[in-house]
Design a protein around this nucleic acid. Sequence first.
DNA 1: ATCGGAAGCT
DNA 2: AGCTTCCGAT
Length: 205
Amino acid sequence: MHRSCLAEGVPTIAGNSSISGLAFPDWAYKAESSPGSRQIQLWHFILELLQKEEFRHVIAWQQGEYGEFVIKDPDEVARLWGRRKCKPQMNYDKLSRALRYYYNKKILHKTKGKRFTYKFNLSKLIVVNCPLWEVRAMPAPNLFRPTLVPMGMQSKLLHSMLLTPWATVEQLAGQWALRGPPAASEDKKGSSSRIYPMETFGPPR
DNA sequence: ATCGGAAGCT
DNA sequence: AGCTTCCGAT
């Protein structure tokens, strides 16, 4: 019931897409404890900005290192974040504290020595936050092959999200091939999350 | 600028 | 849980 705070100039970009710029798909917003009141996560927002050319003067991918980005205008990024979260008093000091909490979560880390430069942790990000193309209500007596996964928009969104500098299909696949897919918790909540979408990115072989 | 503890908020 | 706010230390 409490959708927009600064309803004036802010055309509710959150939620589902429909805008050319595309917001994030459902899986990007962790359901968390309260289903229904899903809020935008900071790293989603960062990704959102990074993917739009109109913000390239504010925040942009760093060429060379995959997943590395530079905040060119910290004040502006903070302002935008504050607007999205309805926190007018947001500033880079506070925003960066939130980013620092990502260090332990392995979502981000700092690129030491480079000012305002951070780097996403690909493996954690991809595996933990997207690939729950959960097989809801699926008896699955036999192992289903990860090859199919009949999704349309989701893979497309994910792909466009990952299209930017970093992470090619080969790199992801390579990482997972070497280390193996990160341990799937067998009997956690009874949900099986050992489907990994790597096949969905590359051309079907 | 960057870090991380501590307390507070939802 | 995921920040937001504040702040002393490096």
